[in-house]
C-alpha cells in the first residue's frame, strides 16, 4: 500500500454526520478504511450497524470493509436514550436505503480494534465519532494500545463553546462519561475535535446544490442520499440553533483532521471528564490555570480553517 495512504478504523453510531464521514472516507483516495466499528449513541447499536452496512453498499468502495458491532450501552452507567430528534428514527434522517448483502463480523468492535492495531503496529489511525465505549473496552483488552496506534481523533466534548445536550456537555461524552474519561486518561495520542471547531464547520444547502451540479455521475446516488438525510438534519439545527439550510460537520471534520492535522490549530491541555450525575456530567474539564494540576495532556482543537475543510469534504464527490 502506498505510504501516503492513511489507514483508518472508524468507530461510529451512524448517524447522519457519521454517514457523511463513512461516505467521504470510502470515496477518498488518500484513505484506506480498514474497518468500521459501531456503537450505540445516536441510535441503538443494531440500527447503527445496519445503517453502516447500507452506507458501505451505497458507497461501493471497491474493496472489503469489515464491520464489527460494538457496545449497546455505556461502559459503566445505564443507558439513557437516543437522539432521534436529531438524526431521525432510523438514525439517517428516515431515508430508506436498500438492505445490505454484507453482514457484521463475529468479533466485537473492541476485539476487532485490538487485533487490527496489533497486526499493524504504528499504522492505524483511530477515528471515533460516537460514544467512547468501544475504545474504553479496547483499552481494557490491551493496555498497551496507546503505544501501538498511529493517532486517535475523537469527535467529542467542548472547552470554550457551549455544550449541546447540556449547557456544558457534548452528546458523545455526556452519553458515556466514564468511557470518555478512561480514554482521555489512557495515554492514547488524542486529538479532540470538539464543538469548539465542529460548530464552525458547516455543510450547507449551497454545498449540496454544488454537488448536484458538479458531482460525478458515479456519486449521484450518494449525493441524493446526502440531500435527503441532511434535510432532516438542517431542520433540527433550525430548531436548536437558528441555522438556515446548514448543519455542523461534527464527524466529517474529525476524519478530515485525522488525515490532515493542518486544518486545525490545537492546544495541549490537561483534560479530564466529569463523571458525576448532575449538571456538569460529561463535561470536559480542561485545566487552563497557569499551574494546571488536573487531568492528562491531550491535543484540543481550538481553531479551524473551516472553508478549506468544507471544500476538502466536497472535493471527493466532484
Amino acid at each position: 500500500m502506498p505510504n501516503n495512504i492513511v489507514r483508518v478504523i472508524i468507530d461510529v453510531d451512524t448517524g447522519i454526520d457519521d454517514a457523511l464521514t463513512i461516505l467521504y472516507a470510502l470515496k477518498s483516495k488518500e484513505i484506506r478504511v480498514e474497518g468500521i466499528t459501531t456503537v450505540f449513541g445516536n441510535i441503538d447499536v443494531d440500527q447503527a450497524t445496519d445503517n453502516t452496512l447500507r452506507i458501505i453498499q451505497l458507497a461501493d468502495p471497491g474493496y472489503d470493509v469489515p464491520v464489527a458491532r460494538g457496545a449497546d450501552r455505556p461502559y459503566k452507567r445505564s443507558l439513557t436514550g437516543f437522539a432521534d430528534s436529531v438524526h431521525g428514527e432510523n438514525g439517517i434522517g428516515n431515508v430508506k436505503l436498500p438492505p445490505a448483502s454484507q453482514t457484521a463480523v463475529a468479533e466485537s468492535a473492541a476485539e476487532f480494534i485490538v487485533r487490527m492495531v496489533n497486526e499493524n503496529p504504528g499504522e492505524i489511525v483511530l477515528v471515533a465519532t460516537g460514544r467512547m465505549t468501544n475504545l474504553a473496552f479496547a483499552l481494557k483488552l490491551d493496555e498497551q494500545l496507546p503505544f501501538k496506534v498511529k493517532s486517535v481523533a475523537i469527535m467529542g466534548g467542548t472547552v470554550h463553546a457551549p455544550g449541546n445536550v447540556t449547557p456544558v456537555a457534548e452528546a458523545n461524552f455526556w452519553g458515556d462519561p466514564e468511557a470518555a474519561d478512561a480514554v482521555m486518561q489512557s495515554g492514547l495520542p488524542i486529538t479532540m475535535v470538539g464543538l469548539d471547531v465542529t460548530m464552525r464547520t458547516h455543510i450547507t444547502q449551497q454545498h449540496l446544490d454544488l454537488l448536484n451540479r458538479f458531482g460525478k455521475e458515479e456519486n449521484k446516488a450518494i449525493i441524493a442520499f446526502m440531500q435527503q438525510s441532511l434535510a432532516h438534519y438542517f431542520g433540527f439545527y433550525t430548531d436548536s440553533n437558528n441555522y438556515i439550510g446548514s448543519a455542523p460537520m461534527h464527524d466529517p471534520l474529525t476524519l478530515l483532521v485525522a488525515v490532515d492535522p493542518g486544518l486545525v490549530k490545537t492546544q495541549t491541555m490537561k483534560v479530564s471528564i466529569d463523571c458525576g450525575d448532575s449538571i456538569s456530567a460529561g463535561m470536559v474539564v480542561a485545566d487552563l490555570r497557569t499551574k494546571p494540576s488536573m487531568g492528562r495532556d491531550i491535543q484540543v482543537c481550538v481553531d479551524v480553517d473551516a472553508q478549506r475543510a468544507e471544500r476538502q469534504f466536497l472535493s471527493v464527490f466532484m
Binding site: D274, C275, G276, I279, M283, V285
Partner: peptide, 8 residues
C-alpha cells in the same frame, strides 16, 4: 451552581 460533580 454545581454542588455535586466529581471534578466540578
Amino acid at each position: 451552581v454545581e454542588t455535586k460533580g466529581d471534578l466540578t
